[in-house]
Design a protein around this nucleic acid. Sequence first.
DNA 1: TTTGACATGTAAGCCGTTACATGATTTA
DNA 2: TAAATCATGTAACGGCTTACATGTCAAA
Lengths: 189, 189
Amino acid sequence: MPGAQLPVSSYAVLGLLSQSEASGYELAQQVDGAIANFWPMSKSNIYGELVRLEELAFVSGSEVAQEKLPTKRVFRLTSAGAAALDEWLREPTFRKERRKNSLLVKMLFGDRLSAEEVSRLVDAAGVEAEAERARLATIVTMLESVPSAYFARSTALFGLRHAEATLAWAAEMRRDAAARARTRSSSLN
Amino acid sequence: MPGAQLPVSSYAVLGLLSQSEASGYELAQQVDGAIANFWPMSKSNIYGELVRLEELAFVSGSEVAQEKLPTKRVFRLTSAGAAALDEWLREPTFRKERRKNSLLVKMLFGDRLSAEEVSRLVDAAGVEAEAERARLATIVTMLESVPSAYFARSTALFGLRHAEATLAWAAEMRRDAAARARTRSSSLN
DNA sequence: TTTGACATGTAAGCCGTTACATGATTTA
DNA sequence: TAAATCATGTAACGGCTTACATGTCAAA
């Protein structure tokens, strides 16, 4: 009876709690810092997961009073939670995530647009990808010198390579569009 | 009053209907053929969209009786539907799709795994990416010779470049893991 | 004095999935 | 005779989002 399958968000929370105990509020901050790049979670989502995980006894929360600040509930991973996390981490069979990409939906129906409008879409995607590329390149370089951030760096590197792929694609699209414009205008003459 | 924002799935259906009228059943088949790579939709999803789009008068359905086959409802795009589609297609501001990737969640917590277990994850991702690469490379090449499939090819090319990016990343991870194993064993001596 | 950080949650609702339900016809 | 294709949908539910609700304290 291997653990009931939980949403990935559950394991993301378990993973964070495996590094250090935290309140829901603190988890939300941590998510924005690291995981959000490839697994965004809203505040409500996190609080909801904590309820679920506590019912499963995968985490246990205890109130911690603070001076001059509201009392918070700090959660820590239980051994059952750690076992569930590790089991999931080892599964190489990540259910195939269908990557949804509305840019490609637009591209597919590019026939309905003018060449200029298509270019605008491609350029916008390129600009976005370049920003992402620069952002991730910085992070990857920074983490290079931090041995303990080996795995964090690897996730950023994945994003970097994919941003580069998008840029390469955009460049190819621009070249193709130019070539297309030539053959089309010549066939019109 | 630019159109109320509909889910991307609505526009995907409108896009397909802009190419030819079709029944829900036929749309489901078309989705599996092309769009599913970057915007999968279930049968129920499609039927649901058709209900919504018909209420909005973006499509209109009419029953078509068939010999020896069940009657079907064939939908065609209305001019209002075409306008809504084109407006959406032109928007270069695709709301940022959070690309969710559970592999990266696992990688981020790679510290909890042994080097072998991490390798297994990376290898599995590599195998999957290679299959995807090969599949898409074939499609891109095939569509190369079909001028009318220009945009379909461009979507496949995007997927191809991203599969290559994943492969490149996996290769880097393997190299890093090897280097890491060396420095770690030497520091243990 | 108002804004922002700290802190926790509920409510409503959308998008989408899987499973279920039905029924004729064709093919193996 | 069983399975697949054609054809349309409903039901139930899961995951997640946004907006709402509340309240203290520190800083600008």
